[in-house]
Design a protein around this nucleic acid. Structure first.
Length: 444
DNA sequence: TCTGGGGTCCTAGGACCC
DNA sequence: TCTGGGGTCCTAGGACCC
């Protein structure tokens, strides 16, 4: 029987900000969403002040001011890079046969086999992992251990809230004894804190007298199956220490969609501004696509204003990852759904039906536009241009070279002090210390 | 008097996660 | 006045096929 560990970085974004700014270590820190609109991460000190996750900044401004809370705009270039480093450290540790990167700040680890490793040995291993990540990357982590993923999540939550570092629900080779101990833990674990039980399910469950994880485990299976569907059935099994979720393999983890969307810094009505914004989103999503060696077969765009939400998608004749081609497609869709007289507040682009670029299937049919058969060398040429742009930008610096359509050249300087009104404001952003040469920290 | 069975594909909506 | 962004999965219903 396998044992799972869930490793979770503590207050990840706030901790990332502290790696290069150690003076923040004892101060309350919050990280803000795009447009500096919402709180998306808090240090322990900020949590203690009562600042809530997802809270709009203007609603807790008084607390931020009063306690001189340090604000940082989200710096995903930095967080993504530190995340990669954490995952690399974990996967190089002996005694961890497999790793599933679950999110930017979490990973499930497989920790050998209960027939060969005692609970004490696995606790020791987890302490070592925690130590290595903190020493090599500078990010504090908590680890939960159990025989199922859901229970490992429970254990992790307990490790985190009680600042234990490591907490295990795999406590004995004797299952009966272990299950008794698990029940005592589940009895004081809120049902809404279980992984997979969100706001709505929690409401339904509590309205029916199910308040703790133990209540859920013991609830009528058919009723749970009806209300929480297949998901609930799995949850009950996992809570009962019977694994039914496995560690996902890298193939399972292949992206099914890639998107890029933004709320605008200001409301936008002009078509030319929307063209520029969508070109930027498309170029950014296409570059993500290429970094994962994928091509997209379907492109969808959406526009939203106060009054309406419009979306339109199209299938590509031939899967592509070429920025210039995809920008053209996005613009064609834009012209079909754009309506003047609306003040748009957000737009985005979504690629789906992704295929691995190296197993690209060429069409046997002629393209409806050009009436020629797609040829491998024209695809290669487009690919080469995009690759070159990616290489220059990663070698010399972000935006060293960009697509003309992404530059705002049309709007006059008269209507707005900034020609990029669609761009969100980011007034408290730390440098991209680890991903841009120009932002390399100086030590003097 | 009698009206099947087995599919696929697509979309929208709803739930969840970090 | 001011409320993010990027994902996944499941289900139901409709249109359509033979």
């Amino acid at each position: 029987m396998k044992i799972f560990a869930l490793l979770d970085c503590n207050n990840f974004y706030a901790s990332c900000e502290r790696v290069f700014e150690p003076r923040l270590l004892s101060r309350p820190v919050v990280v803000l969403s795009n447009n500096d609109g919402c709180i998306i991460a808090r240090s322990n000190e900020a949590k203690a002040l009562g600042i809530k996750m997802g809270e709009p900044v203007f609603m807790c401004q008084h607390i931020l001011d009063k306690h001189q809370v340090v604000k940082r705009s989200a710096n995903f270039a930095l967080y993504g890079d530190l995340s990669d480093r954490v995952m690399t450290v974990i996967s190089e540790i002996l005694g961890v046969p497999a790793v599933e990167v679950y999110s930017i700040d979490e990973a499930f680890l497989e920790l050998g086999d209960s027939r060969f490793s005692s609970p004490a040995e696995l606790n020791y291993l987890a302490r070592d992992i925690q130590f290595q990540v903190e020493r090599q990357v500078g990010i504090p982590v908590s680890i939960g251990i159990a025989r199922t993923k859901v229970l490992a999540k429970v254990a992790n939550k307990i490790a985190k809230t009680n600042r234990l570092g490591v907490f295990s629900l795999y406590s004995s080779q004797d299952l009966i004894e272990e299950n008794l101990r698990i029940d005592s833990v589940l009895a004081s674990f809120s049902v809404g804190d279980i992984w997979g039980v969100g706001y709505r399910y929690a409401k339904t469950l509590m309205a029916n007298g199910i308040h703790t994880a133990l209540d859920l485990k013991r609830a009528n299976h058919a009723w749970i199956r009806e209300k929480l569907k297949i998901h609930g059935a799995r949850l009950q099994s996992e809570l009962a220490n019977m694994p039914c979720l496995e560690l996902a393999s890298p193939e399972d983890k292949l992206r099914k969609s890639i998107s890029c969307s933004r709320s605008f810094g200001d409301r936008v009505s002009e078509l030319s501004t929307l063209e520029t914004a969508l070109a930027n989103f498309t170029a950014s999503a296409a570059s993500k696509l290429r970094s994962q060696k994928l091509s997209t077969s379907e492109l969808r765009i959406f526009l939203s204003s106060m009054e309406r939400y419009d979306t339109l998608s199209t299938r590509l004749f031939q899967a592509s990852s070429s920025s210039s081609e995809l920008i053209g497609v996005a613009h064609d869709l834009l012209y079909k759904i754009y309506q003047a007289n609306y003040r748009y507040k957000k737009a985005g682009v979504i690629f789906s039906d992704l295929v691995l670029a190296d197993s690209l299937q060429l069409s046997f049919l002629k393209s409806p536009e050009t009436a020629v058969l797609p040829e491998i060398h024209t695809l290669k040429k487009q690919q080469t241009i995009s690759d070159l742009v990616d290489r220059l930008n990663s070698k010399i610096g972000v935006n060293t070279i960009s697509w003309a359509a992404t530059l705002d050249t049309k709007s006059s300087s008269a209507d707005s002090p900034s020609s990029e009104r669609w761009r969100a404001s980011k007034n408290h952003c730390s440098p991209a210390y680890t991903t841009d040469w120009r932002s390399l920290p100086n030590i003097s």
